[in-house]
Computed example of a mutant assay.
Amino acid sequence: MIRLVTTDLSEATEGREAGDALVTFVACAHAMLDPGTPEDRLRRLEPRLLAQLPTLRALGVFELFDIKDPALAAMLADENLNM
């Protein structure tokens, strides 16, 4: 079982990739949705955000949560078509 949060420190590394993927995705998405984010930073963030998709899909994140921002949702839908 993959855990995003654990209280058992003996298993602190188990599921870490899942937690890291979720944190990275959310941080990149927030920055990409910020109108003040410079274009050059947006170009660096997009591949990092997209790289998290396989892990997040495997966790079923997108079966539980919807992306509300139309531009971000369209980018993810386009990425799904290109898989």
Rank of each mutant, 00 (worst) to 15 (best):
A29R: 04
D78W: 14
L33H: 01
T24Q: 10
R57K: 12
R44M: 12
F25Y: 12
L72A: 03
L4H: 09
T6H: 07
C28N: 03
R57H: 12
D34G: 04
S10H: 10
M83T: 12
R41A: 08
A51M: 01
L42C: 14
E17I: 05
A58S: 06
A77Q: 13
C28L: 04
R48P: 04
L33S: 04
A71V: 14
A77G: 11
E17V: 08
A29D: 03
Q52V: 05
L49K: 03
L33W: 02
A71K: 08
L42G: 02
P38W: 01
A12Y: 08
H30T: 13
E11M: 14
G19F: 12
D8A: 11
L33F: 02
G60Y: 04
L81M: 14
R44P: 01
Q52G: 04
P38H: 00
F65V: 11
L9K: 10
D20A: 06
A21D: 04
A27I: 09
P54M: 07
K68H: 06
A29V: 06
A21L: 02
M32L: 15
L50R: 13
D69V: 00
P38C: 03
L59P: 00
E17L: 10
C28I: 07
R41N: 01
R48V: 05
D66L: 03
E63A: 12
A77W: 02
R3D: 06
A18F: 00
L42M: 15
P70E: 07
V26D: 05
A74M: 08
A21V: 04
A74G: 11
R43Y: 01
L76R: 05
A12D: 02
A58R: 10
D40M: 10
L22F: 08
G19V: 10
M1E: 01
D8W: 03
K68L: 08
L50I: 14
D20L: 06
F62Y: 14
P38I: 05
R44W: 09
I2E: 00
V23F: 10
E39H: 08
E63W: 01
V5I: 14
E39I: 12
A71S: 09
P54N: 07
R57V: 08
A74D: 14
D69M: 00
L45T: 01
R41G: 01
T13N: 02
L49W: 01
M1P: 08
D34W: 04
G36C: 10
M32Y: 03
L81N: 14
L33T: 07
L59K: 00
L9Q: 07
L53W: 11
A74Y: 03
R16M: 13
P47L: 03
A73H: 09
A18P: 00
L53M: 15
V61E: 06
D8P: 03
P47K: 04
D66A: 11
P70A: 08
M75V: 15
A77V: 06
G36Y: 09
L76A: 00
T55S: 01
P70F: 01
T13I: 04
P54L: 08
G19R: 15
E63H: 10
D78G: 15
L49M: 15
T37E: 05
T7V: 07
L22I: 11
A77I: 03
E17S: 05
R44H: 07
G36Q: 13
P47C: 05
N80S: 13
L49C: 06
R44Q: 13
L76S: 03
L53E: 10
F62M: 13
L64C: 09
H30L: 15
